[in-house]
Amino acid sequence: MCRKINADIFQIVDLRINRIISKLRNQHPSAKFIYDIREPRDYNLLYITLKKWPVPFFIKMMYARHIQQWEYSKTNYYDYLIGVDDEIERRVKENCKIDYTTIYNYTNLKDLRKNNPLSMKVFDAAYIGGISEVRGALVIAEATRILKEEFSGIKIFLLGNIHDIRLRNYLADFIAKHDLKKIFLLKNMYPILKYLIIIIRLK
């Protein structure tokens, strides 16, 4: 497939593609290769992917570290690395020798909010993406509880899937216990149009 396309630039988005990166490079010697390096791989493996594996923690930790080092070693096949936040930048600069740029993954509001008056505000802050402990769901919940004391009208919105059932139950209990039902809203992923409507209502 790649031979047929014969691209000038290849952008690799996921870790597993690195299994064929050396082959791809050999097939396309004049092409440039960019790797879109994602969130800390070892933490993700340890606290999300492998969380429920019935294997001792230290083995999971060794495996997660091994995969992370494997990913770093594979970056040598690339011409350029891109990432989405400062933490990835810090890790890349510590572990890789390839040039890197952060392209923040902020929501692109473009012209949607040009004439958006404060009276239209529905939410004070929103998070869009997979909801997990590693991504700060518990911190946001706790922050909402604290902010509620100071700002009674505050509204926080988390839009995304919660794959961890324990986290889902914990957040449901937390919301009930601290009476946050009206100010801390959790929703599963919407189709993109509905999600744009939420963005417009942010201030």
């Binding site: 790649c2 396309i5 014969n6 691209a7 000038d8 630039i9 290849f10 952008q11 690799i12 988005v13 996921d14 870790l15 597993r16 593609i17 879109d36 989405v84 993954n105 692109n108 993109i192």
Partner: peptide, 22 residues
């Protein structure tokens, strides 16, 4: 025009970032 090929494994075609943004 220059040709770019995006290869994904865990992200679907209409991924928010890889498709709609990049």
């Amino acid at each position: 025009p220059p040709v770019i090929c995006i290869i994904a494994d865990k992200h679907d075609l209409y991924d928010d970032r890889a498709y709609w943004k990049q």
